[in-house]
Simulated assay, not measured.
Amino acid sequence: MLDRIKSTACFIRNKVAFEPEVGIILGTGLGGLADGIDTVASLDYREIPDFPVSTVEGHRGRLIFGMLGGKKVVAMQGRFHYYEGYTPQQVVFPVRVMKMLGIRYLFVSNASGGVNETFRTGDLMVITDHINLIPNPLIGPNIAELGPRFPDMNDAYNHELIEKAKRVAAREEIPLRFGCYVGGTGPTYETQKEYGYFKAIGGDAVGMSTTPEVIAARHMGVTVFGVSVITNMGLTGLKSTHEEVQEEGIKAGKRMTRLFTELLKEL
């Protein structure tokens, strides 16, 4: 696995003479942030050796290199999910490659269902913690060059960046929520009892991604900041569709883009 990670990173470096400081993962309906990047190069996932290919509508499927908020970034316009049939190790493969390319920070985003009844559709929730219900990507032999056997997840979502985000949001008048994200396998939207369970165990929002990538990033010592866009309210009993989730993600994407851009300036 380590050889494949290094080989893929080497391929990208040979194609793109650009060393990113920050990696960004864009969730369902949130690919619009890419429009704000002063792009110097892009690569379709299909061009990259050993890279998975996104099969989900709303995930463009390319790496974008450029400047955002005065920082060198590489953005994943489209991510990979366990429910697509990929192993947890394949899901986090791009994060490991981005680390090899030089990132020190990872900004993650996702579309999620609201569990906290005080939330509303379209809210931005800064992730302060998570509960991972997806098979852990670190299961199996540990690669010591990537990180320790038992990484500490106490500061999974960096407290300093969360405080900076609060100050940015106040200055830019961007309303924020804060809470715990629950990562489930999907691909079904949750039942009412499952939403109730997630609430009971401390969740504020639930989705089908993010936690594996964050685990892999922290395993490698990458600092993480995360935002969930609340695209539907789970406990209302209303049916959810992928099209609605995409639509709400697009609406909230402009505020998330502003938050990410201004926060990057603070790094």
Rank of each mutant, 00 (worst) to 15 (best):
T55A: 14
Y45M: 04
L43H: 00
V53M: 12
L30V: 07
L63F: 01
L26Y: 09
T55R: 09
V74S: 02
V95M: 11
G69M: 11
G29E: 15
E47R: 11
G58Q: 08
P88F: 07
E84T: 07
L26N: 03
V91K: 02
I24E: 04
H59I: 08
P94T: 08
G78C: 02
G27W: 03
E84Q: 07
P88M: 13
R79L: 07
L43M: 14
V56A: 01
M76S: 04
R60G: 06
D50L: 04
G31Q: 01
P94L: 02
P88L: 05
Y82I: 08
L63D: 10
V74Y: 07
G78H: 11
G36L: 05
G27M: 04
P49L: 00
M67R: 14
R46G: 14
G85M: 12
Q90M: 08
D44A: 15
G36E: 09
R62K: 12
F51T: 03
L63E: 04
R46H: 05
D35K: 09
H59M: 03
I64N: 01
T28E: 05
G85K: 12
A75Y: 13
Y86R: 08
K71L: 11
D35P: 01
Y83G: 06
V95L: 07
H81W: 10
Y82T: 03
R62A: 15
K71N: 03
E57N: 15
P49Y: 00
R46M: 06
H59V: 11
Y82G: 00
S42Y: 08
T28W: 05
F80C: 09
L68I: 08
Q77N: 11
H81E: 07
F65I: 06
